[in-house]
């Protein structure tokens, strides 16, 4: 579903990604972890073309992201993205946030888009918040609306960029539960997170990034029990306490 081959990226002279290779198969969930500034978010933003990269190739569902002739707008309809700071549109209700893209991009009727939005809000557990503005929602609720907004486009892939890092501890679980359900439901997912409980439960592969490189990868057991790289061990010690 996603193939990343030898991808390198620079900001000016500063190299943020160095020869990244990774493959995500349909239905798999890949967890990406690593210290801040290690290039995790940048990698996600390269996959849906929000940022360009200079070397290598990313193929999403058979389409080359780096190819100048690729219609990135069309590509992005197949890749949902959830952000650390939710990024709901503050001037729209939860319902309007969710129905905007299906109506404008997929040309769905208002009725059709709203029915789908209600179904998604029920799925993320907050159907009663349908007419609330983001400012009146808790962080966890906002993030669940944001997930519903991405799902409304019926994407083939979902990417999560530290979806629980800006949340209070008691709200983390409600968001993770939604993500676990998605993963178990067969969604192809790339999740940047430090929630190792989540990784243990659903990750098919965990990759550890540092200074723009993937320095360790493994299925959950091998990754946690005997990390080969001292940086990984150090990092895991810190986040797992």
């Amino acid at each position: 579903m996603i193939e990343i081959r030898d991808v390198s990226k620079w900001y000016g002279h500063f190299q943020v990604l160095t020869k990244i290779n990774e493959e995500v198969k349909q239905g798999q969930t890949v967890v990406v972890c690593g210290p801040s500034g290690s290039g995790k978010s940048t990698l996600l933003r390269c996959i849906n073309g929000l940022e360009p990269f200079q070397k290598g190739e990313i193929i999403v569902d058979g389409v080359s992201v780096g190819d100048p002739s690729t219609n990135l707008y069309k590509l992005r309809t197949e890749i949902g993205m959830v952000f650390q700071r939710f990024e709901l549109y503050p001037h729209m209700t939860a319902l309007q946030n969710i129905t905007l893209a299906p109506m404008k991009v997929r040309n769905k009727s208002k009725k059709e888009a709203e029915d789908k939005a209600m179904e998604l809000l029920r799925r993320v557990g907050i159907p009663e918040k349908v007419h609330e503005y983001p400012a009146n929602l808790s962080g966890g609720q906002q993030q669940r609306v944001a997930i519903a907004r991405s799902l409304a486009m019926e994407p083939k892939i979902m990417m999560f960029d530290e979806p629980t890092s800006a949340l209070d501890p008691e709200m983390i679980k409600e968001v993770l539960d939604v993500m676990v359900d998605l993963s178990k439901g067969g969604m192809t997912m790339i999740v940047v997170t430090h929630e190792m409980g989540f990784a243990r439960e659903v990750a098919d592969e965990i990759i550890f990034m540092d200074e723009g490189k993937i320095i360790e990868r493994g299925t959950d057991i091998s990754f946690f029990k005997n990390p080969k790289n001292p940086r990984t061990k150090d990092f895991l010690d810190k986040i797992l306490l």
């Binding site: 993205m81 990024e87 709901l88 893209a101 404008k104 991009v105 944001a146 409304a152």
Partner: peptide, 26 residues
Amino acid sequence: SKGQIDAGYSTGLTYIQTTRYILIPI
């Protein structure tokens, strides 16, 4: 916020749609 614009793009909205429905109203 740049993030709200990116959120628009990530759902497949075009530059003009993002400007029209998100940037300008906010």
